[in-house]
Simulated scan of single mutants.
Amino acid sequence: MRYRKIKPNSEFEDNPPNSSKELDTISEFIWALVISIISLIVVLIFTAIVRYAIDSSKTSKKMDVLIKEVHYLKTEIKKLQHHKQRDDSKHIIDEKV
């Protein structure tokens, strides 16, 4: 009878002491932190590579030249339209007189 009250070893193995649970929790947190830091470093490296590729290409410089040229053309068109309107108004005035 005395032996029936003793629990088998399998029940003890399923329930480890609390100190190892805390240690497992801390180690899981540290691994999660390490993986997060490594992921952040990989993203930063990828961003730096892409940014360098864009900066080293000449497309951004060409884009600046095109933007300046379009701006210049717009101002020229506005000037021509303004001169045309002035010339048309003079012509109308001359016809009335």
Rank of each mutant, 00 (worst) to 15 (best):
E76S: 06
P16H: 09
F12Q: 10
L40N: 06
E11A: 10
W31F: 13
W31S: 12
I67A: 06
L73T: 02
Q81D: 14
I37R: 11
S39F: 13
D64Q: 08
N18G: 02
V50M: 14
S56A: 10
I38T: 12
K58G: 09
L80F: 07
K58D: 15
K74G: 01
E22R: 14
S10I: 07
H71V: 01
V70D: 02
T25Q: 07
H83G: 02
S56F: 08
A53F: 06
L23C: 04
K62W: 04
Y72R: 15
Y72I: 03
V43L: 15
I30V: 15
P16S: 10
K84N: 11
I49Q: 07
L66P: 00
S27I: 12
L40C: 13
W31T: 03
V65K: 10
I77A: 09
S39N: 11
F46P: 00
A48N: 04
L44N: 07
V43K: 13
K68N: 14
S60M: 04
V50S: 09
S57K: 02
I35G: 01
I38F: 05
I35P: 00
I41K: 09
N9Q: 13
F29P: 00
V70K: 08
I77G: 01
T25G: 02
K61N: 03
I77T: 03
Y72H: 10
E22P: 01
E11M: 10
I67E: 09
K78W: 01
F46N: 05
K79D: 09
K79H: 05
D14G: 12
Y52Q: 13
I45M: 11
I45W: 07
T75K: 12
L73I: 10
S10W: 08
L44Y: 08
I26A: 11
K61Y: 05
E28N: 15
S39W: 03
D64V: 07
K62D: 06
K62H: 08
P16I: 03
A48Y: 06
L80Y: 10
K21N: 04
D14E: 13
I45L: 15
V65S: 02
E11G: 03
T59K: 13
F29R: 14
L40R: 04
E69M: 01
T59I: 08
W31C: 05
L80W: 09
K58C: 01
L73N: 06
L23M: 11
D55C: 02
F46W: 14
H71P: 00
P16A: 09
S60K: 08
S20R: 12
N15Y: 12
I35V: 11
V70I: 09
D14M: 10
H71D: 09
T47G: 06
E76T: 07
N15P: 00
E69T: 09
I45T: 14
D24S: 06
K61I: 08
S56N: 15
I67M: 04
L80T: 06
L73D: 05
V34A: 13
I45C: 08
